[in-house]
Design a protein around this nucleic acid. Structure first.
Lengths: 205, 205, 205, 205
DNA sequence: CTCTAAACGAGACGGTACGTCTAGTCTTTCA
DNA sequence: TGAAAGACTAGACGTACCGTCTCGTTTAGAG
């Protein structure tokens, strides 16, 4: 028996890779050029030379297309050095996200997806599972290790701590009342680790 | 001429108060009963017995109706005792918002408005100016006074600190990965004031 | 009280006559230029500069548009001189229809409407009531008067007789196996009145 | 090469008889159960367990499938006794068709095929050649023989006469303004042969 | 006590995207 | 190499809501 490969053995015509990637590209281009409202199923289909039927067959909604478009473009913001000192690791992780949001179209895309998630639980779930949770898990792991090393207070609420690091970034992304400037990652990390009280901070050293 | 009151002196029929309040009520009812997607201009007009023309005359968009509906219902979450001790004041302020979001329709409404703000800068601005900024200003004032009293480190970034208190609440409201439980306000405040490091926390006294 | 007129008293914006006539014209033009398959609701809307919503509001289907288009164009084929001698009146009536079908777009339009009627009972009913029945009634009246004058056998089946005059015209229109030539009206009338048998015919004078 | 059998000698897999008959059956069943609109290529393929490609390979359109379905079921309406007396033979021929239309699904099927013929010349041609013409030819032959025997006036228009016998049946089938009742065949034949005029009819003996 | 003008309800309008459907074609694997 | 499976492009379907536009009808203050 020669055919050793995983064996797919599906019968009919296989899914067109051309269609898939053309759709994701079209969605990204439309987003960049015309904003979220320009990303209609109609427009995606027209630009990608794909029929609406095919679109709806593989993606249940506009937002799902954008989700996949997002994930297919940005993977690297999870790649940090977890063996670095705690504060350094946290700052590095936060910096990656902050810069990605500020300097690429990932920022507006993410904002729009969070918005879409309010009306569509599927979007919200996908966003959480495929984007937020992996990042939160890394941070939780970092903090828990520090607790075990005796660096952090064992009584802390890890979930709340993680949110105090990440939430401000998304909050500013969505509301825009303050910019996502370069020092933000370090400031958030420093203030949370050391607290705001006078003297409490023996910052870095 | 008796009419000495300030200006106006418009001739025609005055704006109908009935229409105004009927619209705001209709919007709120629709939101509660059918979610954000049920709040269409068409539906508001039908339910409020108001013509679409009137609707568009006074509110430029669906989201503006919801904004006014929001503001006309919740004012009291800014009313805290600023003379209380710092931690107590902060916890009290955060608790008010958290409870309001968790227990009334203000939560979903706010989430939808933040979402709407992604596509409409007017919404975003109104949300910031009429809701977020007043609350941030109170918190900033509290923190600045504590700095001046010598309780807090003068080097802290006030804007970032405020976000580390409030952002997690909105973040959880929008993403739903963790609940808005009762202890959240105290946890966020305690962890930020005292920091996470071992020993640093001699929380309160 | 001056206002004595019937009073329309409709409240909202009145129906646009422009839209109505543009639709009927567009439908006719599309039919002529591209055949029945070109007459889609989509194309009518586009050509008439009318929204699809308006189209569907006033006409439940494509075929109803064509029906009204037909009726708004041809009324005169019922105008014959009923006081003429029987054979002359019948030939004249049949000739009008035959020529109308052969020389104008009413022929193909009628054929398509009969076809549409197979799938849509509304079409079939409208076609019968508004087109066929009025014409059949005239013919029935002519024949009945002739019976009463003693010209025709009182035992004849009027409905069948009418069909033996008209049906061949529609039959040829739909099947096309024989042309709708000029003599057809006279031939059908003569053969039916006089019969096919030898000698029976003392055909005319 | 052993395969010596007569002819064929085509290479590859032979056409599947299973597919052919399953398609024709499926088409008939769909027509009966859901009317003409239920007979889509899609539905036929699904019901017959046949791929659409195969369907299109052997039948160029939906209507061709229905045509073949029609012809594969009804052949016997041409089998009459041409040696019978003229009126008897004509009535017998008309009766066969009338009953077939009234009592089986051939009626609606024929109506739909005539309808389909308006949009598809192939259908119209097939319908004429394979169904209508054979029947018209028999009638024409009967009438011509009667002319030669001196029973009928030699001046008659045979084509028109045939239409005056058959057209009313199809006309009623398509328009439905009058039923295809049992006496129709006799009435149509009698009225045409004897004419409508008083006294002319000394019908039969 | 009129006149006038703005705001009102009703509702039709052109436009656009929606999500579904069927038509035909194309590309695989199976027999 | 034909057939079954099924993915593909194309485009019409009928619906919903958008924001605008007439209408005829109130409802006040100005004259």
């Amino acid at each position: 028996m020669e055919e050793a490969v995983a064996g797919r053995a599906t019968r009919g015509r296989p899914r067109s890779e051309r269609a898939r990637s053309a759709v994701l590209e079209a969605a990204a281009e439309l987003l960049v050029s015309g904003g979220i409202d320009a990303v209609t199923m109609e427009a995606i289909a027209a630009r990608a030379q794909v029929s609406k039927a095919t679109l709806y067959k593989w993606w249940p909604s506009r937002a799902h297309v954008m989700l996949e478009s997002l994930f297919s473009r940005t993977r690297h913001t999870t790649e940090i050095d977890e063996s670095a000192p705690l504060e350094e690791a946290l700052v590095s992780q936060l910096s990656l996200v902050t810069r990605e949001f500020r300097e690429t179209e990932t920022g507006p895309l993410m904002a729009d997806l969070v918005a879409a998630g309010q009306a569509d639980p599927d979007i919200r779930a996908a966003l959480d599972e495929q984007w937020l949770r992996p990042r939160r898990q890394i941070t939780t792991r970092l903090l828990r290790a520090a607790v075990e090393r005796g660096e952090l207070d064992p009584g802390i609420d890890l979930a709340a701590a993680v949110d105090q690091l990440f939430a401000p970034v998304y909050y500013r992304l969505l509301l825009g009342h303050e910019p996502l400037h370069d020092d933000l990652a370090a400031t958030l990390t420093g203030q949370l680790l050391n607290g705001l009280r006078t003297g409490a901070a023996a910052p870095k050293g």
